[in-house]
Design a binder for these strands. Sequence first.
DNA 1: TTGTATGCGTTATCAA
DNA 2: TTGATAACGCATACAA
Lengths: 349, 349
Amino acid sequence: MVRLKDIAEKANVSTATVSYVINNTGNISKETREKVLRVLEELNYKPNQVARSLKNKKTRTIGVIVEDITVFNAPEIIDGINSYAEKHGFSILLTNLRIYKRIGNNYHEIEKCKDLIESAMDELLSQQVDGIIYIGVHIRDVTGLVQESNKPIVYTYCYTSSPKDYSVNFDDELATYEITNYLIEMGHRKIALISGLIDSFPSHQRFLGYHRALMEKQLLFNPVFVKTGDWQYESGYRMAKELLELQEKPTAIIAMNDVMAGGVLEACRELNIKVPDELSIVGFDDREFGIYFLPKLTTMRLPLDEMGLLSMKKMIKLLDQDKEVDYETKVKCQLVQRESVSSPSGLIV
Amino acid sequence: MVRLKDIAEKANVSTATVSYVINNTGNISKETREKVLRVLEELNYKPNQVARSLKNKKTRTIGVIVEDITVFNAPEIIDGINSYAEKHGFSILLTNLRIYKRIGNNYHEIEKCKDLIESAMDELLSQQVDGIIYIGVHIRDVTGLVQESNKPIVYTYCYTSSPKDYSVNFDDELATYEITNYLIEMGHRKIALISGLIDSFPSHQRFLGYHRALMEKQLLFNPVFVKTGDWQYESGYRMAKELLELQEKPTAIIAMNDVMAGGVLEACRELNIKVPDELSIVGFDDREFGIYFLPKLTTMRLPLDEMGLLSMKKMIKLLDQDKEVDYETKVKCQLVQRESVSSPSGLIV
DNA sequence: TTGTATGCGTTATCAA
DNA sequence: TTGATAACGCATACAA
């Protein structure tokens, strides 16, 4: 390992001088600068970041706590964080809580993970990270899970109840508003909605977007067309069956995620209903498997990489003591038009 | 920030003493130990790992370079690395090369990434990581891409031509051997194979396993039943069509990945061939979308988390100067039986 | 059993 | 324009 001292000796200067030329601080004559530069090159010097960090009391390292990296949202968010971090000379210390393997779908047991999160935080703080980005597995309230600290924290794919915490999420309300509008423009008037668990924030927001679109277009809001699922395949299947056995069937169904949309498709196969000719279906999330559905699923793409990128951007602003940092950031989703939507049969648009 | 010194002052002992009790080194009387412990607790002391690392010349941090974290294999491998690392008090410094976004499917352009990889390595080395785990996006030869260094490197989901490099992969040959055997046991005699690109190592190995199974069971090896695809959906579709238009059709098709198996299924739908009644299909990879196929895809699960775990295990052994570390590790894949395989029609087993 | 003092590789203050 | 030196927080050799 080559140290500053080695460079200094070989170049016949002091370590201070070498440090000056490396960091472009101080006034160094052109000759010494070039001499030092030459030796630096020659010995292939790489600064020891650990020593630097100790001296500077800054590590240019961000701790990323991800609730579960095997869940579909995580990799792209991390990708976004990484890309921005790399561009600005920051490193990522990754901690994976693996909560999915630990508590499965019982998110109410998340409290059990409090110790886990605390020790993850302690570990990262101990490593002197400059800040922490917390990535949830579901958009939900994580208030109280993460201990306070004097380092900035940015939450993404989750939120807290405190208005003074920093978060980056996507705009649920706008997303379903746009889906609903899209269906209305395609000529649909009887649009059903299969919701996720009713006590979840995204379910609520997405319902609001759906409702707003109907109201703005002065369409009838029919409560019978709103069903509550639990995000799982089977509930999509079951709710679709209920909807399709109605006296007055919907001509389109919005499922609040792609998994439930899969269930809707199965119900259609069973009831021999042609998609999209007799029923249009829109999912949510743009999971990879959607392109393998028959027909290919029209859905809402989550701006995951952008969320990651903006989280990191926000973090750096915070570290730069920027005063103009928004607490809450909402990113727009993008409709992905594939094959599961058409105008309702009999209608010529 | 609370330092050793603060503890020492408050407890009326020297910093050395505090250090001794924290690290359980030296002989400390029960009383002083307890006194120090109390102050430690009281001030909620967290050791500064940066200072520690500088002193110890060890960071207990492993650099993980992943060619692309958004590719399906990466998250689970990282998960495995994480779980083992956490258990042994190691941290993960993650670098994502994002080569998929940079060069797409043109893996021959990987040379272009050499600079990228080099700067990633330099960065990690500069951070004084104790070792590096390199995760590829495809099982392929990465010789020469990663520069030498005095720190141990473990390659996973890729390999090098040097027999003295450390690697962890899955056993391709055994996997197709088992698939083929499984189909033979189900009563199939005419088993076709749709290969990936022919110049790839996994394609070659998997062919070998297929061939060995046929030979051992003294079945005819029919070259007409072996088709070369390019890992993509469309090639699976095209090759399946060729196979199913043969005078003597196969009763089973093994596709070397799930994506191509999807293409095979599409060909079957088009030709009105019932799966699995008239044709059995086995994929490879156990991608998430396989359960949404009709019928659900029988496939080979990749032991990704185990590969990650074993990579980290190997790394720690290397750091412990263990002499008995295998250069090459091969992990067994697991057949996942779902609905796309049955005995050939007309046959009662 | 405990304390003093040095050094890990840097940066930066201050003096020359 | 350059150099000597202290300090960052910790671990440890050696002295007491």
